[in-house]
Amino acid sequence: MRTPRLPKPPVPLDPVIQGLALFSIGLGLAELLAPRQVSRAAGMTKNDTLLRGYGLREIATGIGLLVAKNPRPWLWGRVAGDVLDMATVAGTANTKKPGRLGGSAVALLGVGMLDLYTAMMAKPKLANPARVYRDSGRDYSRRSGFPKSADKMRGAAADRRKLMSNQNRAVTSGNTARQAAE
């Protein structure tokens, strides 16, 4: 069975998915290595342990997106992570920094919309290529390229090369003999 066709997205999704994966890994590394700076920039009160946990989640999702044959579960994972991030920002908001809070809300919404759209549009890559390939119905089992069975052709070119090299040697020695006689 071929995968059912989904509506074609207006832009190729592969680079978008790759971009999201790299973004996820980058953000994850930042959260893991510099949680205080990230929470400050996002307008949150500090919670290093939570941020580091989120960092690990982002990195795992990013790697999953890069290597998985079917990116959809990982994209939906990102969507769920976005919801969690929004809830976390709302719950740990540093109200003394409304500008930063507003900025992170816009960023979260923007990335969240992109994640949601990509998760809805992404096609699974071939989960089991062998099963799909078999659907072609083409039979190449008689395409040997040989005039006889492969067993009968075994060594045919080696014999030919030997023969040609013997012929060349005969011509060379004939020429040498001729030259010597002259």
Binding site: P129, Y140, R142, R143, G145, F146, S149, D151, M153, R154
Partner: peptide, 22 residues
């Protein structure tokens, strides 16, 4: 003249063609 040739792939048609070639 190899005694045995072994082909490694995961596409059935390509493996069919490889078997046809010995």
């Amino acid at each position: 003249g190899a005694k045995q040739v072994i082909a490694i792939d995961n596409v059935p048609e390509r493996l069919d063609m490889a078997r046809a070639g010995g």
